Amino acid sequence: LEELEQFARTFKQRRIKLGFTQGDVGLAMGKLYGNDFSQTTISRFEALNLSFKNMCKLKPLLEKWLNDAE
């Protein structure tokens, strides 16, 4: 759980530094990986307001997006 919290904080910082909005991330993930995510989902991930199971599902996709975006 602590690792997920740390990743969520780091993800938000890096996303902002790269100049992407939460909506940009959701749209890009849909185009790149075929998984559409709303701005609300990205927001809830960053705020740790998703279930642990959903956080675990999203983490690898967000890590991949972040690596591809950098």
Rank of each mutant, 00 (worst) to 15 (best):
21 T>P: 02
61 L>T: 14
33 Y>N: 05
41 T>H: 14
28 A>I: 05
28 A>H: 09
66 L>P: 01
45 F>A: 01
14 R>Q: 08
48 L>A: 15
30 G>M: 15
13 Q>C: 06
29 M>L: 15
19 G>S: 06
16 I>N: 13
39 Q>E: 14
67 N>Y: 02
18 L>R: 04
40 T>W: 11
30 G>F: 13
9 R>G: 08
49 N>T: 14
46 E>D: 00
43 S>R: 12
34 G>E: 15
27 L>K: 15
25 V>K: 01
25 V>R: 01
68 D>R: 12
65 W>A: 02
54 N>T: 14
49 N>G: 13
32 L>Q: 15
32 L>N: 05
55 M>Q: 05
53 K>Q: 14
26 G>H: 06
38 S>P: 09
44 R>S: 15
32 L>S: 13
59 K>T: 05
40 T>D: 14
66 L>T: 02
17 K>V: 09
46 E>H: 00
3 E>W: 03
54 N>D: 15
51 S>E: 14
37 F>N: 03
68 D>E: 10
19 G>Q: 02
18 L>S: 04
45 F>Q: 00
31 K>W: 03
53 K>L: 12
35 N>F: 11
70 E>P: 03
64 K>H: 15
23 G>L: 12
65 W>F: 10
42 I>C: 02
34 G>I: 03
29 M>W: 02
12 K>E: 05
22 Q>P: 08
40 T>V: 15
54 N>S: 15
5 E>Q: 09
44 R>N: 02
50 L>H: 07
4 L>A: 04
62 L>F: 09
43 S>E: 12
32 L>T: 08
60 P>V: 11
70 E>S: 15
26 G>Q: 15
4 L>W: 04
37 F>S: 03
18 L>H: 10
26 G>T: 12
7 F>Q: 01
9 R>W: 05
11 F>D: 02
54 N>F: 14
50 L>Y: 05
52 F>H: 04
7 F>T: 03
15 R>A: 00
43 S>L: 08
56 C>E: 13
28 A>W: 08
13 Q>S: 13
42 I>S: 01
1 L>M: 08
33 Y>K: 09
21 T>Q: 04
2 E>H: 02
62 L>A: 05
35 N>T: 04
9 R>M: 07
23 G>V: 11
28 A>G: 07
13 Q>E: 15
39 Q>M: 12
7 F>C: 06
52 F>Q: 07
44 R>K: 14
61 L>G: 07
69 A>Y: 06
16 I>W: 04
7 F>H: 02
9 R>Q: 05
36 D>I: 09
25 V>F: 02
33 Y>G: 10
28 A>S: 08
29 M>S: 02
12 K>G: 02
39 Q>S: 13
56 C>L: 14
20 F>L: 13
9 R>Y: 07
15 R>F: 00
68 D>V: 10
59 K>W: 08
54 N>K: 12
56 C>G: 09
29 M>V: 13
66 L>K: 00
50 L>K: 01
24 D>T: 04
60 P>N: 04
64 K>C: 06
20 F>P: 00
20 F>H: 11
59 K>R: 08
16 I>Y: 04
24 D>M: 06
21 T>D: 05
36 D>K: 11
38 S>A: 12
51 S>W: 00
62 L>Q: 01
42 I>D: 01
20 F>T: 03
11 F>M: 05
9 R>C: 07
54 N>E: 15
68 D>F: 15
44 R>Y: 11
26 G>L: 09
14 R>G: 12
19 G>F: 02
5 E>D: 10
16 I>K: 12
53 K>W: 08
1 L>N: 14
56 C>W: 10
37 F>G: 03
37 F>M: 12
55 M>L: 12
17 K>C: 14
28 A>R: 11
2 E>T: 03
16 I>Q: 12
42 I>L: 08
6 Q>L: 09
52 F>P: 06
1 L>G: 14
24 D>A: 08
27 L>C: 09
50 L>S: 05
33 Y>V: 09
70 E>F: 04
37 F>T: 05
60 P>A: 06
61 L>V: 09
30 G>W: 12
46 E>R: 00
36 D>E: 12
23 G>S: 12
2 E>Q: 05
54 N>V: 14
33 Y>F: 09
42 I>Q: 02
35 N>S: 08
33 Y>A: 09
18 L>A: 12
66 L>C: 14
46 E>G: 00
64 K>A: 15
39 Q>F: 12
31 K>M: 05
33 Y>W: 07
13 Q>Y: 05
19 G>A: 03
17 K>I: 08
21 T>F: 01
10 T>S: 12
59 K>D: 00
13 Q>A: 12
33 Y>E: 08
23 G>E: 11
58 L>Y: 05
14 R>I: 03
62 L>R: 00
62 L>V: 10
3 E>M: 02
58 L>D: 02
34 G>K: 06
32 L>P: 04
61 L>I: 05
20 F>S: 04
17 K>H: 04
64 K>R: 10
34 G>N: 09
22 Q>W: 13
23 G>Y: 04
21 T>H: 03
66 L>G: 02
25 V>D: 01
42 I>N: 03
62 L>D: 00
56 C>R: 14
58 L>W: 13
22 Q>H: 09
41 T>W: 12
19 G>Y: 00
55 M>I: 05
47 A>W: 03
4 L>Y: 02
23 G>M: 13
57 K>V: 07
15 R>V: 01
8 A>S: 06
40 T>S: 14
8 A>N: 02
10 T>F: 13
1 L>K: 06
2 E>W: 15
62 L>K: 00
13 Q>W: 05
48 L>R: 12
35 N>R: 12
52 F>V: 11
40 T>F: 11
58 L>Q: 04
11 F>T: 02
42 I>M: 06
40 T>P: 08
37 F>A: 05
2 E>V: 09
5 E>L: 07
